[in-house]
Design a protein around this nucleic acid. Structure first.
Lengths: 107, 107
DNA sequence: TGTATATGTCGATAGACATCGAACACTCCG
DNA sequence: CGGAGTGTTCGATGTCTATCGACATATACA
């Protein structure tokens, strides 16, 4: 369960991680609610996908450095790596999170 | 040679179009120099790829609504669709263009 | 100690994508 | 007209990605 260092964040990877409607939705829940458990996040995002697929998306976001995953008992708690992202790519996360849901893309 | 209407821009498509080191480079030239011819743009971006590959990238950027292509004699002139992008996704383009070249990603 | 809950991993599959060279189309200029 | 310059399209190829179901793992709880 590796997280990249802030110095290792790359814009193309971050953009690729965000360039998916499911992941754009998944990233909004921890942005609004703070740290969220995996299941709650999936439900909050209204994602009708299998657990393994969600786990895959979670890994993509984590390996790109967009989210942090913390083990808490039997659950995983997700949070946005907002400070690191804002530091490396100022304004990027805000512009993505402020986009109206209708403009995110088709599922 | 179709360009999407501003109302048809979708964040996931724009992010996907930008989520490539070659395209991130290609987009910086017209941002700095204004309207640029294709060849000049490719050279300015330092892209060592074939013409057909560059043409492919150009198409991806155009179909996502990131750039506009105008035919001028035997050449194509490229420009950023800055106004439309800023209107739909405020701050996104700026954050991408302001990112240091070393952070764009590996080629 | 079982049993239920929560989540990751594996292997398969189907579709998307980056890349190239070759061939084609169009414009400009001599 | 014909060659040079500019760029697109096509077909092939290798790689990546999204998705799933099944299985494994780990914690929590009775």
């Amino acid at each position: 369960m590796a997280h990249p260092e802030p110095a290792d964040l790359r814009l193309d990877k971050v953009l690729a991680a965000l360039a998916d409607p499911a992941r754009l939705l998944a990233v909004r829940a921890p942005a609004e609610q703070g740290e969220s458990p995996c299941t709650g996040l999936q439900q909050a995002a209204g994602l009708d996908i299998s657990r393994s697929t969600f786990s895959h998306h979670q890994r993509v976001l984590r390996e790109a450095g967009v989210i942090r995953v913390r083990v808490d008992g039997s659950r995983r708690m997700f949070s946005l790596r907002r400070a690191e992202l804002d530091s490396c790519f100022p304004g990027l996360l805000d512009s993505v999170l402020n986009t109206a849901p209708e403009l995110l893309g088709a599922r």
